[in-house]
Simulated scan of single mutants.
Amino acid sequence: MSENSAFFSVRDIHAYYGESYIVQGVSFDVEEGEIVALLGRNGAGKTSTLRALARVDDPQLTKGEIYLNGEAVHEMKSYQAAQAGIQLVPEDRRIIGGLTVEENLILSQVSEPKGWEIEKIYDHFPRLGERRNQEATTMSGGEQQMLAVARALARDVKILFLDEPYEGLAPVIVEEIERILMEVRKLGITTIIVEQNAVAALQLADKALILDMGKIAFRGTAKEVLDDQELRHEYLAI
């Protein structure tokens, strides 16, 4: 058990891709139900940090501790982290070709623990309900992003990691994804977002973390970043 009382606690994690030292001593805390924007320039280590937190095979976590509600995530394999309530929606979405929307959702619930029932998902994602029998990979990018988020919610998710959820999406679809994430927050689900559209992520988030060369360069409120033009220019080029 962690001595820290935070819902999600990250302590001095280090991770490598092969010989490349990518994540260099990252530490932060997140409270239950918060939305955190994890920001930085290209190559800052955002995706690598997110993947290390989700305990996927790459990058390799070599040092540090990660606790979710007191459970030692750093000691888990990726499937164990998923069972503990960590769900990663990767940038490429990983929608399964040849299966319908509903079959993708059903497949995500093959193993326990389950989250939202399929019909509840359709209540929150009516567009997916309309396309339940459509082959999932034939949908638009925005609809596939909705499905990727919905698939995570079909599991018993406690903390949701989103990697570039707005990439390539029309503004109207971004607004719909944001609406869904606000509903997710009301349910007490914690969310960490990696996003190149920093302003959109900050407008949604409670807290902000800025990475630079694999290290935390700033931690504070999202409003602090939005209000600090010099900080945004230095680390985000906006």
Results as ranks from 00 to 15, higher is better:
residue 31 E to F: 12
residue 237 A to G: 13
residue 90 P to C: 02
residue 8 F to V: 03
residue 128 L to F: 10
residue 215 K to F: 03
residue 32 E to T: 07
residue 112 E to V: 01
residue 74 H to C: 05
residue 12 D to Q: 12
residue 236 L to Q: 05
residue 131 R to Q: 13
residue 137 T to N: 14
residue 37 A to H: 02
residue 51 R to V: 00
residue 143 E to V: 06
residue 146 M to N: 06
residue 75 E to G: 05
residue 146 M to G: 08
residue 5 S to N: 15
residue 42 N to S: 13
residue 199 V to N: 11
residue 201 A to H: 03
residue 33 G to M: 09
residue 52 A to W: 05
residue 81 A to C: 02
residue 182 M to R: 15
residue 14 H to P: 00
residue 132 R to A: 09
residue 16 Y to V: 00
residue 108 S to A: 15
residue 114 K to L: 00
residue 143 E to A: 08
residue 56 V to R: 10
residue 180 I to K: 13
residue 79 Y to K: 13
residue 80 Q to E: 15
residue 35 I to D: 07
residue 100 T to S: 15
residue 201 A to Y: 03
residue 201 A to I: 00
residue 138 T to V: 04
residue 107 L to P: 02
residue 77 K to Y: 10
residue 172 V to L: 15
residue 214 G to T: 04
residue 22 I to E: 06
residue 92 D to S: 12
residue 142 G to F: 01
residue 49 T to A: 10
residue 103 E to K: 15
residue 138 T to E: 12
residue 166 Y to L: 02
residue 149 V to N: 12
residue 169 L to G: 09
residue 95 I to Y: 07
residue 105 L to F: 12
residue 162 L to S: 05
residue 76 M to C: 05
residue 105 L to A: 04
residue 4 N to W: 04
residue 214 G to Q: 02
residue 204 L to E: 05
residue 190 T to F: 08
residue 141 G to W: 11
residue 21 Y to R: 13
residue 235 Y to P: 02
residue 6 A to S: 14
residue 155 R to H: 05
residue 127 R to V: 05
residue 38 L to F: 06
residue 161 F to Q: 05
residue 64 G to K: 14
residue 188 G to K: 11
residue 68 L to Y: 11
residue 223 K to P: 00
residue 83 Q to V: 00
residue 4 N to G: 03
residue 41 R to I: 00
residue 236 L to P: 08
residue 7 F to G: 04
residue 210 I to H: 12
residue 201 A to C: 06
residue 177 I to D: 13
residue 108 S to E: 06
residue 212 D to M: 06
residue 145 Q to M: 03
residue 36 V to S: 00
residue 131 R to V: 01
residue 180 I to N: 06
residue 133 N to R: 14
residue 155 R to V: 03
residue 169 L to I: 04
residue 32 E to R: 15
residue 209 L to M: 07
residue 2 S to F: 09
residue 192 I to L: 15
residue 107 L to I: 00
residue 109 Q to M: 11
residue 217 A to L: 06
residue 174 V to S: 01
residue 66 I to F: 10
residue 72 A to N: 15
residue 230 E to W: 11
residue 131 R to I: 01
residue 109 Q to K: 12
residue 154 A to G: 13
residue 49 T to N: 14
residue 10 V to C: 04
residue 43 G to L: 00
residue 93 R to N: 07
residue 166 Y to S: 15
residue 169 L to N: 06
residue 92 D to Y: 10
residue 73 V to H: 10
residue 141 G to Q: 11
residue 53 L to K: 06
residue 195 E to W: 09
residue 162 L to Y: 11
residue 128 L to V: 04
residue 3 E to F: 12
residue 147 L to R: 11
residue 27 S to L: 04
residue 25 G to A: 06
residue 142 G to K: 07
residue 20 S to W: 07
residue 38 L to H: 06
residue 102 E to R: 14
residue 193 I to H: 09
residue 43 G to M: 03
residue 130 E to V: 04
